[in-house]
Each structure stands twice: as C-alpha cells, then as structure tokens.
Write a protein that binds this DNA or RNA. Structure first.
Length: 506
RNA sequence: GGGCCUCUAGCUCAAUUGGCAGAGCAGCGGACUUUUAAUCCGCGGGUUGUGGGUUCGAGUCCCACGGGGCCUACCA
C-alpha cells in the first residue's frame, strides 16, 4: 500500500473521514516520521526467533526473577499490551504463533524512551526489541527491554482477540484470521505437511513428479464445464484444465513409467460448501500396475499424510473411530447395492428391474440413464453415506466408467474403484483403458455429445489418440482431491482448508 | 435454480409494541513497576448493507437490489 497523498515531511495525514482508530495510528506513523525514525525500516535487529528462546529456556524451568545474562534482539507482532505506569508488558507473536513477553520498565528504558513507547506503539504493530532474557516476578519468560524499534506500523486495529471473527471476515481477510486464530495458522502448516508427505510417498516408490499445461486446447480427462480464455499469440481459444489425466498418460507413453502431478484444476460450475472453482488434484499413473496396485498406493499416501500431521485416527460423522492405520476394506458396487435393496443385483440386471428398485427406494433419476448409470445412482443414494470406514468400492458397470478397462473376469464390469471414507468419495482409480481403437470410439462418442451441446462432454483430442496409438503400457491410474484429503484429516470444511477461497467482490 | 435466515461502532454482539442506538473488547485522557481478556476515574466513537416506500416518528414494517450463511436441487 502506498500513501502518495501523504507528505512525510509535513505530517498531516489524520484524515477526518477515517475511523478514529485508524486516524490515531496514522498520526503515530506521522510522529515517527517527524522525529526522523522510519515507521517501515529496511531492517531491524533480530538475533533470535521467539521460538529459539522458548526452545532454549522453557526446558530449564527457571525460577521467577531469574536474570540469564543473555542479550538478544527479537521481533514480532504486538498482540497484547498492558501499561501499569512505570512498567509495560507486551506479548509478541511471530508467524507460527509462538509468543514471548517483553517488559518495558522505567528503570531500564528511561523516562523519555518509555513515554515514546507508550505514545507510538499499538496492538498489531511489528516491533523489534533488544534486551536481556529474564523471567518476570510471576515466572514468565520475558525479554527485559533496553531498546526497541518499530519494524512496521500497523494502521488498522486488530479484531477482538477473545471473540472469534465472523466466518465471512475470516475468509475475506484471511491475513487477519491468520494473525488471530491458531487453527488458521495450523491449517496452512498442516496442508504443507500433507503435500510434503504425499510427494515423499510418491518419490519413495520411484514416481516422477511432472508439471503439465494448465492451458489446454481441448477439454478432456473428466466431465465438467471448463473455463475459457484466449491466447493472443495464436488467436486461439483455450481452456483451463479440468483434469490432469491426458497429459500424464502422454508422459507415461513416453516412458515416464511412474508419473504423478499435484496441481490446480478448474471447473466452471456451481460453488458450495464442498465445491470450489479451482482445486488441487493429485493424479498418478503406474505402468504395469492396475487398480489393485493403486489401492495399495493410495492407502500409503493417506496413511503417511495422516502421520505427517499426527492424525491417524479420525472421528467419523456417526461418532465412530476411523483408524487409517488399519487396512482399508474392499467391497463391490453390486455387492453393497444388493445388500441395500435386499435382493441380488448385478451387471446383468435389466433396466426395468433397476427402474423399479429406484422407485421402491424413492431415488429420483435423471432422464435417459442406462442400466449401469442407474445402478451407480442407486449406490450413491443408498450406500455412499453409510461408508464411514475406509472402503474401496470396486467393479463398476462399463457404461458408468468409460475410461476403465473391462474386468478381467466378469463381463459387463470394468476395473475401477472409488474410495469412500467418512461417507465421502476421496479418490478413484482404474485399470486404465489403453486400446486406442476403443479409446477413440469412447472419445468420439463424447465429442458428439459436446457437439450436441453437452457443456460437460470431452472434446476429441486427436493428439491424445495419436499418443495412444504409439502404445500405452497396461497401467493403473489414480486420482484424489487434495482439499478433500486435508478436510478429512483435519476434520474441517473446505473454506477452512483453502487459504484464500473465491469470494464475490465486496 | 427453489426455500429460510442474516447484515447495527475497528471487532463480537444487544436494542421490549414502531418511540432518545447500547455493551464488552479495542481507542483517547488520567492513576498505578509484575500485567496475562489487569484494576480504578473520565471521554470520544454510528449514513443501523444500498435505494425506495408506509408513518407524526423506522435498526424495527413493506418493496427492490447487493453481500454472507444454512437447507434443498444440480454436479465425475
């Protein structure tokens, strides 16, 4: 932020139209400038992190009124300020939430410097303080200040520490949320730890991380409405990717046998508490693997991510305990569905029977669904929410998963699973279709839908088909939503896990 | 898309039947050398989301618009 209208040599920026507290802070900034002290210096002394001092001294169990003799310079944000006349207490907080008390006394600072401190420092300011590490009379680890500098003057008051910010304020001003709310700070670090664990798990298994284009010529790899944009250099309409799949398969065809990407995808669809316009996808492909090797992989990914943030047991939404250290269950789609409807249903069950079952169980269907799609609809409505313990739901009807390979034993099914945990879908995997002729048929079918106006259908990606015709190894492929994983492991909503969620302009 | 709720001081929230717009924290002035949401005395702070309307009088009732939330529907 710049204040071009403020003349620093002639301080008069106490603008009348500002709220009182902002005016006061601007005046203090002006006073610093007037005395020749920069309110935003290039650097300030800092010999120790608050965290360092806590690590060094907390373990020593110091008596009250201890003087350690160690001289330090520390820096942090003033989050608490108490003035008892000739002695001021300040609590500094640094970015990770570590706090340390600083004491400003008449005896150590002198009358003039103490008065300057009282007159210039507000809650929220970033401060550098020099002094000795001591413990207070109450035994609290502190720095007894002998000098201080403003590191950066804050012009807006911090919100009330003791009342939670409204949910809207939290997401609109996440920077403030991060300052005042420990859970917000922890979320940032938890997500980073999860990402690190995911990469370590892939890397440990010999997977190679790649980056593939976000800007795409065609819409493919999933069924979703894309964002459109324009590339001026080619005068070319472009799409933002909705999935990573096609480029990762191209890489695998080229010999990146174990390949993964963690990256942003974009979907121009409805937004709600579980759907975001942009979100991070995790996809991996393993040549000579299949959907069983992917099941092993995803368990290890989730387990290691949980361990990285110390959360390997989760309380399910029905109150039960989910222990992700335990092997995940396997079930079949038709097995679970048969159980739910109380009669045997399989890939050969005809459309009429399935429609009848849908009616009996009050499941509303979209028009023109085929038998396989109805079976999946029934499963989603009747079974999905009951899958609290981690469960791989395997073997989908062919028509419901057009990019998976036919099942090795059961006709009419394909080798695909969805992983459910706490009643939500967390990841998917296939034994990937690699017959370029069948692949072409499927994609042509999709492109006809697209031509007919289905905004979610895939475009025909001729280059992808050409790549497939060079031979894609038999492979397993998996996908998982990063935000859903973090939500699951931390037990929070999507607006908490995304640092800066998309919001309407104020 | 449909339904319900909500928007008041920097922040979090009150305001009875339509009758002077308030509190806590934060801020300003004063006292206090051990506070930890300190205490004590005093003071300021508002276009009640925006625009209309009803009324002697609107934070409150009506209409429209905007922001936010919840439920529902849709959604690889």
């Amino acid at each position: 932020m710049t204040d071009a209208h403020v003349d620093p040599v002639n301080p008069d920026s106490g603008q009348d139209d500002l709220p009182e507290q902002m005016r006061v802070r601007r005046e203090k900034r002006d006073r610093l400038l007037a005395e020749g002290v920069p309110p935003y210096p290039i650097s300030v002394p800092r010999t120790h992190l608050l965290k360092d001092l806590r690590a060094t001294y907390d373990a020593q169990d110091l008596e009250p009124d201890t003087r350690t003799g160690e001289q330090v310079s520390v820096a942090g944000r003033v989050i608490f300020l108490r003035n008892t006349g000739k002695l001021c207490f300040v609590r500094l907080r640094e970015g990770d939430g570590t706090e340390l008390q600083v004491m400003f006394s008449l005896a150590d600072l002198g009358e003039e410097e103490l008065a300057r401190f009282k007159g210039l420092v507000d809650i929220g300011d970033l401060l550098s303080v020099q002094g000795e590490v001591i413990t207070s009379r109450r035994g609290e680890l502190s720095v007894q200040a002998t000098a201080w500098q403003m590191a950066a003057k804050t012009l807006r008051p911090l919100p009330n520490e003791h009342k939670p910010l409204s949910e809207e304020a939290r997401v609109r001003m996440r920077y403030v949320d991060l300052i005042v709310r420990p859970e917000a700070r922890e979320m940032v670090r938890a997500k980073a730890a999860v990402l690190k664990a995911l990469r370590a798990t892939y890397d440990g298994r010999g997977f190679v991380e790649v980056e593939t284009p976000v800007l795409q010529l065609t819409n493919g790899g999933a069924a979703a409405r894309p964002f459109s944009t324009h590339l001026n250099a080619f005068d070319q309409e472009m799409k933002l990717r909705i999935a990573l799949e096609l480029d990762l398969k191209r890489a695998m065809i080229g010999g990146v046998d174990r390949v993964y990407e963690i990256g942003r995808t974009f979907r121009n669809e409805g937004l709600d508490s579980t759907h975001s316009a942009e979100f991070s996808m995790i996809e991996a492909y393993e040549a000579y693997g299949d959907y069983d090797t992917m099941a092993e992989l995803i368990q290890e990914l989730i387990r290691n991510a949980g361990r990285a943030i110390g959360r390997t047991t989760i309380t399910g939404r029905d109150g039960s305990t989910i222990d992700i250290e335990q092997p995940f269950q396997h079930a079949t789609l038709f097995g679970l569905l048969s159980e739910a409807v109380g009669e045997s249903v399989d890939a050969t069950t005809d459309l009429a029977r399935l429609l009848k079952l849908a009616e009996q169980h009050g499941v509303e269907l979209q028009p023109d669904r085929n038998a396989g799609e109805i079976a999946v609809d029934l499963f989603e409505k009747l079974c999905e929410h009951t899958l609290i313990q981690p469960t791989f739901v395997r073997d989908y009807p062919e028509s419901a998963r057009p990019l998976a390979k036919p099942h090795r034993e059961i006709p009419g099914l394909v080798e695909a699973w969805d992983l459910f945990l706490n009643g939500v879908e967390l990841g998917v995997a296939y034994s990937e279709l690699n017959d370029p002729v069948i692949q072409r048929d499927r994609l042509v079918e999709q492109s006809l839908l697209a031509a007919a106006g289905d905004p979610e259908a895939m475009d025909l990606d001729e280059d992808f088909l050409r790549a497939m015709e060079f031979g894609m190894p038999p492979a397993g492929g998996m996908g998982m939503g990063l935000d859903r994983l973090v939500m699951l492991l931390t037990g929070t909503g999507i607006r908490e896990t995304i640092l800066f969620p998309l919001l309407r302009p104020e």
